[in-house]
Amino acid sequence: MKNLPLLFCGIFFALAFSFTGLILTSHIQIGSLTQTTETLEATDDLDENGMPVMVLAEGEPLYPAMPVGLAQQGKEVYISMGCIYCHSQQVRRNEFGADIERGWGPRQTVARDYILQERVLLGTMRTGPDLAHLGGRYAGDAGRDWNHLHLYNPQIVSKGSTMPPFAFLYDVRQITSKPSEEALTFPPNSEYAPEAGYEVVPTRRAKALVEYLLSLKINYSLPEAPILE
């Protein structure tokens, strides 16, 4: 191989080919996705295939919803702790794996679910369970309490788990006048409970992280991925 311009062109176009095919093309296809209503309405106009043109349903909320406040800060904590290395955030379609059967989500996730995320955390490991719908599985105050105990030490609510404790996100402090409302409520006789006169309270980071986890839920349909009853 002595023809060097040819060698160099080959080297260049080999990578240019996949860069165009995979990156630029998906950028064109996915980059133009927008929020949408759960279902679309047909209009009287017909497109070039003779099918009715579909438009957003008037007055309906748009999905995926904008992420808000404390949950957004919690995502930063999720990122800085490297949670992604054991937890994915994607639900595979029915019949491919057991994601839906395990209750990890009511439907498969699709590209549109992620369009408002500044950093997409799909993940490629499931040393722990998928979290795309965690907030749907553990909701409200009960879900909040469960997640705090689980983060403080997973063994409290999930004995035998290999998840590391994140106790450094909590303060153990002496109860002064009256117990804090935010203090963790341990199960009776828990070996992880603080000694008498002490309480465990979440730091700001722990609170944000739990709000983020609770915000992860797939409770809406998309036209291309409806939740089937």
């Binding site: 990156i23 998906s26 950028h27 996915i30 980059g31 992620y114 995320q117 500044e118």
Partner: peptide, 19 residues
């Protein structure tokens, strides 16, 4: 550029990431 500095939209990041 496409993931950290000027994040591409949605899962284009994931495609770029694994490319």
């Amino acid at each position: 550029v496409m993931i950290i500095w000027f994040p591409a939209r949605g899962v284009v990041q994931s495609v770029t990431n694994w490319w």
